[in-house]
């Protein structure tokens, strides 16, 4: 292996060297992979959806400022913020070892359920 690599460097531009081979550039995660979707695990989604919800919050916040007191937008904003915050709490809990990493999958669903229950309780007690 090392021989391959070193002789590759040594033999650059030398047509006689049989080891001067072209490596294929590294495959990316999911590239040319028909099974990419089914193997995207919950932790990846947790990360990705937190970023997406962050962008959604920016948009919804702008809408909230422009169209004041629209209940629908308020509710949507509240849900998005809850979603974003639960995923953020997950990372904080894991970062500081407050929850063992082996519960990381349960943490996503658990926190999200908890957040939803709290927020819906508050919402329906007001409206």
């Amino acid at each position: 292996m090392t021989t391959l690599a070193s002789s590759k460097e040594a033999g650059e531009g030398d047509p006689v060297d049989n080891f001067a081979i072209d490596y294929r550039k590294p495959l990316r995660w999911g590239e040319l992979d028909p099974h990419r979707r089914e193997n995207a695990k919950i932790g990846m989604w947790a990360w990705l959806w937190q970023r997406i919800s962050a962008l959604a919050i920016v948009v919804l916040l702008a809408l909230h400022v422009v169209l004041t007191y629209k209940l629908f937008i308020q509710f949507l904003l509240l849900l998005t913020v809850t979603f974003h915050a639960t995923l953020g709490l997950r990372v904080i809990l894991l970062d500081f070892n407050l929850v063992d990493v082996k519960y990381q999958r349960a943490l996503v669903w658990g926190l999200m359920t908890l957040g939803l229950v709290v927020v819906l309780t508050i919402w329906f007690s007001i409206h």
């Binding site: 292996m1 090392t2 294929r24 550039k25 590294p26 995660w29």
Partner: peptide, 20 residues
Amino acid sequence: ITLRPLNHFPVIRDLVVDME
């Protein structure tokens, strides 16, 4: 069964990657 070489490593041939 779909077999691919490891991601994020240069592919030498088929399923063999450069682990350097």
